[in-house]
Simulated assay, not measured.
Amino acid sequence: MTPDPLAPPGDLLQQPFTPVDPARALAFDDVHRRYPALAGFRAGLGRTTLLDVPSVPGGARIVAKCEWENPVGSIKDRTAYALVADALRTHGDRPAGELRLLAYSGGDLAAAMSSLSTVTGVVTRFVLASFSPRSLLDTLESRGCPVDLVPKERGFLFTIRTAQRIAAEEPGWTLVFQHANPVNVAMHEATTGQEILADLGDRRPDLWLASIGSGGTLIGVLRALRARFPEITAVGVTPAESPYANPDAPSGQQTYEGSGGHGHGIRQPFVKAYDHVISAHEHVTYPDAFRAMGEFFDLTGVRIGSSAAANWLVAKQYAARMPASSLIVTVFPCTGSPEQWAELGR
């Protein structure tokens, strides 16, 4: 395993995670009173469809949470709300203009946080990899959000390290660290996970699987499902080009969106805390995920992003090995970018 030469002292990316009570972590009533538009955004979150999706003949049934139905269009709307509300709670009753947030993102978090920037008046700066689609960069520019682009060849870990360096060198910026803030997991436990339980009704899920970005969705939902179904199996999905706990330096290869290991043996803190619970980690190449976007659209007429497509591919692999009476639950985080769909010709 090669050590990460850019890891700062007390690296948040390598600190242990301890879950917190969602009711306490998400107590944002005072923030809502000061920022009614943020309360309105929260009211529009969630209640997304749990959709039956194509499985394999004779295999387990697959259902997926359709997170593009959130206000800005992805599962990161939930995370962005919790992170911004938490930052405003810490900021207290000082003017919003005195708070300047700095966030790293693979794409969807930036879109969601930039929307919240416009309704709260909080300036938000983003560190993104240079593979970010033009449509996203145009959106961020239109919302007045500064962007620092880092070379895509350095991998997503370098995006995180760049944000950490900026925060250390420019103390006027408050770093929003999605990989370590417990409100990330709490939000998915209290909303995404609870919604899935309500949508399931009297059905019993056998397997929960999700792609790992920060790990907030995988672990938050897992905590909610295990509270009712302690025997449920959990599987993490990451790109084959950048697998979870990869011991080598990041390769910089293109991966499916919003997910991936960091390299140098670094494991996402939320997931590392549950390594003893997660039964397997599966890997999907970018070309396979990209092709599956088109395949799913041809079958259903529904657009899904590449991380959703990766989840679907792995779900089908497990469905083929499980009886038809079994139920697999997964999540479709977003619909993908206009650039991807143009390349697919759909």
Rank of each mutant, 00 (worst) to 15 (best):
D138F: 07
T139D: 10
T139F: 00
T139A: 05
L140V: 02
L140S: 02
E141M: 10
S142G: 12
G144P: 08
C145H: 02
C145N: 08
C145E: 02
P146W: 08
P146D: 09
V147W: 05
D148W: 07
D148G: 00
L149Y: 11
V150S: 01
K152F: 09
K152T: 08
E153H: 00
L157I: 12
L157S: 10
F158E: 13
F158P: 04
T159G: 11
I160E: 15
R161S: 12
R161L: 08
T162N: 10
A163E: 06
A163W: 02
A163S: 08
Q164E: 15
R165P: 03
R165S: 09
I166C: 04
A167P: 03
A167N: 00
A168V: 04
E169R: 05
E169T: 06
E170Y: 00
E170I: 07
P171C: 06
P171V: 00
P171D: 10
P171G: 09
G172R: 09
W173A: 14
W173T: 03
T174V: 09
V176Y: 02
F177S: 13
Q178I: 07
Q178D: 14
H179F: 08
A180Y: 09
A180V: 11
A180H: 15
N181G: 03
N181L: 12
V183G: 07
V183C: 07
V183F: 06
V183S: 02
N184K: 10
N184I: 10
V185W: 03
V185L: 07
V185K: 05
A186G: 10
A186Q: 06
M187G: 01
M187N: 04
H188L: 09
E189H: 08
A190L: 11
T191V: 11
Q194P: 00
E195T: 03
A198W: 00
A198R: 15
D199P: 00
L200E: 14
L200P: 03
G201F: 06
D202I: 06
R203I: 04
R203Y: 02
R204L: 06
P205L: 09
P205Q: 05
L207M: 05
L207N: 07
L207I: 03
S211L: 05
S211A: 15
I212T: 04
G213I: 02
G213H: 06
S214K: 02
G215A: 05
G216V: 01
G216F: 01
L218K: 00
L218F: 00
I219K: 11
G220T: 02
L222F: 08
L222G: 08
L222Q: 14
R223E: 12
R223P: 04
L225K: 07
R226T: 09
R226G: 06
R226M: 12
R226V: 05
R226S: 12
A227E: 15
R228V: 14
F229W: 14
F229L: 12
F229H: 14
P230S: 13
P230C: 14
E231F: 01
E231H: 13
T233F: 05
A234K: 10
V235G: 05
V237D: 15
T238I: 05
T238H: 08
P239F: 04
P239V: 08
A240T: 15
